[in-house]
Amino acid sequence: HFTSQQLQELEATFQRNRYPDMSTREEIAVWTNLTEARVRVWFKNRRAKWR
Rank of each mutant, 00 (worst) to 15 (best):
T32W: 08
R18L: 04
K49R: 12
W31Y: 14
A12V: 08
E36H: 04
L34D: 03
E9K: 15
Y19T: 05
M22Q: 12
S4W: 14
E27S: 10
E9S: 12
Q6L: 06
N33V: 05
R40Y: 07
T32Q: 06
W50R: 06
T24W: 05
I28Q: 01
R51V: 10
F2I: 10
D21A: 06
M22R: 15
A29W: 04
A12L: 11
W50G: 07
I28H: 00
M22H: 11
H1G: 12
A29Q: 01
H1V: 11
K44C: 08
W42M: 01
F43Y: 06
R25E: 02
K44P: 00
Q6A: 06
K49Q: 12
N17A: 05
T13L: 15
V39M: 01
Y19M: 05
R25D: 02
N33D: 09
W42D: 00
W50L: 10
V30A: 14
F43K: 00
T32M: 13
V39R: 00
L34Y: 01
E36N: 04
F43T: 00
I28A: 01
V39T: 00
T24R: 08
E36P: 07
L7V: 09
W42I: 01
S4I: 13
R38S: 12
E9M: 15
N45I: 14
A37F: 14
Q15E: 09
R47Y: 05
R47W: 04
V30Y: 13
L7D: 05
A48D: 08
Q15M: 10
V30D: 09
K49A: 11
T32R: 01
L7Y: 07
R40D: 07
P20N: 01
M22G: 06
F2V: 07
T24D: 08
T13M: 15
N33K: 10
E27G: 07
L10T: 00
N45T: 09
E27H: 10
A29E: 01
D21Q: 06
R40L: 06
V39K: 00
D21L: 05
Q8M: 12
E11A: 01
A12H: 09
F14V: 01
A12K: 13
Q8W: 12
V39D: 02
D21P: 06
W50P: 06
P20A: 06
R38N: 09
Y19S: 05
W50T: 07
Y19I: 03
E36V: 05
T35L: 04
E9P: 02
N33Y: 06
Q6E: 04
T32V: 10
K49Y: 09
Q5R: 12
E36I: 05
Q5N: 09
R25N: 03
S23W: 08
W42S: 00
R47N: 06
R25L: 10
R46D: 02
Q8D: 10
A29I: 04
E27T: 10
L10N: 00
L7T: 07
F43C: 01
S4Q: 13
Q5Y: 13
L34K: 04
A29L: 02
R40S: 06
L7C: 08
E36D: 02
M22E: 08
P20T: 01
R18H: 13
